[in-house]
Amino acid sequence: MITFRLLSDDHPDLAHSPLLRAALLTLQYTRDHGAIGLTQTKAFKRAFVHWAVEHFDWPGSSAEEMFRYNKVINEYEFPPLEVLHYLLITLRLARHFKGEFRLTKRGAEMAQAPGKLFAELIPFYVLQIDHASYARFEERPFGKWDVWMNVINVEADHGTTERALFEAFYGEEHDWDNDGWREMAAFSSCVLRPLEWAGMLVQTHEERGAKYVHHVFKTPLWRSTLMLDTDDMLRPVSVQ
């Protein structure tokens, strides 16, 4: 069973969520400007896409990196914004009206309520969205969120690696340099990345020879917001 605690609007751990930060910025921008212009295909116009790239401070997608090779960026070229756009419309926090993206009454209320917005946005994003739909490959990992999150809760409690997590679920025979790389890519894209975008996990990268080792850690937000069946299996952090 997965339960999300409701956090107060000023809870400091909410700052760990890139997706929540982006949602708040988008809602507040729309509130302050009245609306955001849409293209004929109902995507955000480039002016706002550029603003989002500059202000979201998205992990691994800084404005400097994004604009280094592309002076013009469309919504589909900035996946976090494309996913967020879909989420805000689906959750009825915003709507399309006469070629514009506008807030609903609920959306305007959520723009100033981070704790409530997190409770509305993040469980739906993590547990209900088809994450393969915006991943590089269409493969979906075998499994379900209740198992994934309860195992990660224990395995990553004091830090682990992406490879070790994959092995805990699917065995040792898969690796990035053999035929199992597609299964590992699906697990990374559909399980680890959504949790990282939500702010529950953080990954660091270490170069070892010709390979990169991906380390995975639970953030304080994981610990403050999640209640899981495996919580009673966690070992306390030892103090030297």
Rank of each mutant, 00 (worst) to 15 (best):
E138W: 03
L192R: 02
D146W: 10
N153F: 01
D157Y: 09
H205V: 13
V147Y: 04
Y212F: 09
V216G: 02
E167V: 08
K144H: 15
A185H: 08
M149A: 14
G199V: 12
W145Y: 13
E139P: 10
H174G: 12
E173T: 07
F142R: 14
F166A: 01
S133M: 04
E196N: 07
M149T: 04
A156L: 03
H205G: 12
V202Y: 08
F166C: 05
D146E: 15
A198P: 09
M200V: 07
R193L: 11
S189N: 13
E206Y: 03
G171N: 05
E196H: 05
E207G: 00
V154Q: 00
Y134N: 09
A168G: 12
A210Y: 05
V147F: 00
M149K: 05
N178G: 12
R140A: 07
M149F: 10
H174I: 06
V151T: 01
D177S: 11
G209C: 04
R193G: 06
R208K: 10
P194L: 07
A186L: 03
R163F: 07
K144V: 08
G180C: 14
E155H: 08
Y212E: 08
K211A: 13
D146R: 13
H205S: 13
N153K: 11
G159M: 13
E172K: 07
A186G: 01
A210Q: 07
E206S: 09
F169N: 10
W181P: 00
E196W: 03
A168V: 12
T204C: 12
L192F: 01
A210C: 02
Y170Q: 05
C190Y: 09
D146H: 11
W145H: 08
W181S: 06
G209E: 06
W148S: 02
C190M: 06
K211G: 10
G209M: 10
Q203A: 12
L165W: 03
H215A: 09
H174M: 12
H158V: 05
G180L: 04
W145K: 04
A168Y: 06
K211I: 06
E138R: 04
W148Q: 02
A164H: 11
Y212D: 02
W181I: 00
R140M: 12
E155R: 14
E196Y: 02
P141G: 01
W197V: 07
E155A: 10
E183P: 05
G199L: 08
L192Y: 02
E183C: 11
Y212C: 12
F166S: 05
E207Q: 04
H214P: 01
K144D: 15
H174K: 13
S133Y: 08
A164R: 11
I152D: 01
W145F: 15
H174W: 09
R208Y: 00
A168P: 13
V216E: 00
N178S: 09
M200D: 06
F142V: 14
M184H: 01
H205R: 15
D157R: 15
H214I: 10
V202D: 08
W148T: 00
F142C: 09
E162L: 15
G199M: 07
E139S: 15
A168I: 12
E138H: 03
D146I: 06
F187L: 00
H174P: 04
